[in-house]
Design a protein around this nucleic acid. Sequence first.
DNA 1: CTGTTAGCGCCTTCAG
DNA 2: CTGAAGGCGCTAACAG
Lengths: 354, 354
Amino acid sequence: MARSRRRVSWQSGATIKDVAREAGVSSMTVSRVLNKVGSVRDETRERVMAAVKALDYKPNFSARSLAKARSFQLGLFYDNPSAGYISEFLTSAVRACREQRYHLVLENCGATEDDWADAIENNLAEANYDGIIILPPVSDFTGVINAIEARGIPYVRIAPTLESTSAHSITINDEQAAQQMTAAMIAEGHRRIGFIKGHPDHGASEARLRGFMAAHEEAKLELDSELMVQGYFSYRSGLEGAESLLNLDARPTAIFASNDDMAAGALAAAHRFRMNVPDELSVVGFDDTPLARAVWPALTTMRQPIADMAESAVEVLIQSLSSKRTEADRVPPQHRILPCELIERESLVPPARD
Amino acid sequence: MARSRRRVSWQSGATIKDVAREAGVSSMTVSRVLNKVGSVRDETRERVMAAVKALDYKPNFSARSLAKARSFQLGLFYDNPSAGYISEFLTSAVRACREQRYHLVLENCGATEDDWADAIENNLAEANYDGIIILPPVSDFTGVINAIEARGIPYVRIAPTLESTSAHSITINDEQAAQQMTAAMIAEGHRRIGFIKGHPDHGASEARLRGFMAAHEEAKLELDSELMVQGYFSYRSGLEGAESLLNLDARPTAIFASNDDMAAGALAAAHRFRMNVPDELSVVGFDDTPLARAVWPALTTMRQPIADMAESAVEVLIQSLSSKRTEADRVPPQHRILPCELIERESLVPPARD
DNA sequence: CTGTTAGCGCCTTCAG
DNA sequence: CTGAAGGCGCTAACAG
């Protein structure tokens, strides 16, 4: 029972050579058939396909990557996201990848920007992704961006705030969306509206605030600065922000929390004040995370097209990969802006009359 | 300006050969230094490391995978999970992977078991994972399990219900945890407790119900069957389940929803009935997802050690890989059971006295 | 302790 | 339209 000296392959199934032998052709022909490049006589193709099926041949990913100098993998860089956001994004991104026979590899990192130095060097460098998707707030970390650019890997930034003409980006118009929401509240008859700002590090926060203020301007409404309080996108900060708003001498009749988590916190605050939402106080959120439907009353909120953004990101990336070969005419950076949608549920109604 | 005939490498940086040349050694020595195998003289090692640094050398993932016959990637198979669950699991799993220089690749699939056939064949086969982690409820899909086993890839099932002696599993003791929670409610003085069951397809549902009933038995308490209503782990089903419970002639003084989403629904139902939680009705959940803290009042719930489970899963998998070489003594399947923890918040108090 | 040889499985290039 | 030759970057196995 002498073992052959030849190393025993670990590849569970057949290799391209086995298929070639079985079909009576060269392995190149098999390769061409499988990759649908070049031209192969129909009859030959069929013979190859039959052999593939007979041997249950599956190409080896690593070998293909090595030879083609492509990993067929996209990296997803993120950091400390909200659960609803990431899970929706992932689901959609994975689906989009699969359609293109790509795979999505996760890289999350420490909560501080410093941790990124290691993360970048170790993951980005060694995993040689074909492209990278960067979720907020990482999409605004210049350290990360620079490291990626230094390696020349194509990347898409999701919802970045910092401008960049050289890289792809997928965004929503936070300002416009916030303005629309505020206008809707004004249209319901609210005149004193409280606003809970988002995390100062997160670029969208400021844009949403601008939208809030713009709507007031457009409606020629006064806007007390005491009506705009700081929040941090967390439930707790929403609760505290709403409490300080409700402690005001002249209470607002409605509160616009700049994300759903904080809106949920505002709901809790209202309960503590024994105020009935929405009859005595309207509350709206932003994002339309699953939480928006899970609380009571269900939140009127601004839907971010997260799934669409994920799909777009994958699409843009893979597109820019295929045209990368011809150095000259690489795709120009795309900056897609996707539309939001106002979701009307139960938490916004006209203000009570005295 | 004649271009060399040699193909221009796409590898952005240096290769192992460049490092070898720079350090004046063979590439094998470089390999040994980098992989920390075999022994290398200290001085040589230092020379190599210096060269690595000087050239900013990063090993090529694909080449290493091909040569070592390992992909250094773990697949995560999941399906339609709750947002909180998956995001917590991911965060922890990715961290654990990175420590071992592994990467996590996502594969989610259609909501039906049928969709899996394709998913399995296309992903599992071509991506050649070193190991696979399977989240519930997929961990109980026999079709999936069989397909994976057919390929002989190591895998870990998370929270499976179906027994399997041959494969690794990481579980919690759902029954015991539910019993503990129920006992806590009884200890608070509740005698009529409503129970909202989980999704019938999900194995944990039944176990949690058994625990609920066991606690009653142990306390020698009667248990009306009308107190146990069907739910589906969704917010809506919790709302509806709680409504039917509150419509009973003899209302329960507390409701045990077998996950947090349904508990949030029960909270909403209580509001509709104008009942004050927890003073007039206690409500508890299970899982301790972020939602548990986001609702008002914050839910008393049973914490699942999701992060620990993820870490364990990665650990078990990578462990079983390294010992796989010596065919004879492969690691025996591990069945780890991780402890839950009762998290006391605001939604469980003693029943009101008449 | 270190180097040489020979691939891993696939694909690019070039010749026919 | 098809095949032969050789390389992608790295490492197992075997010498020395």
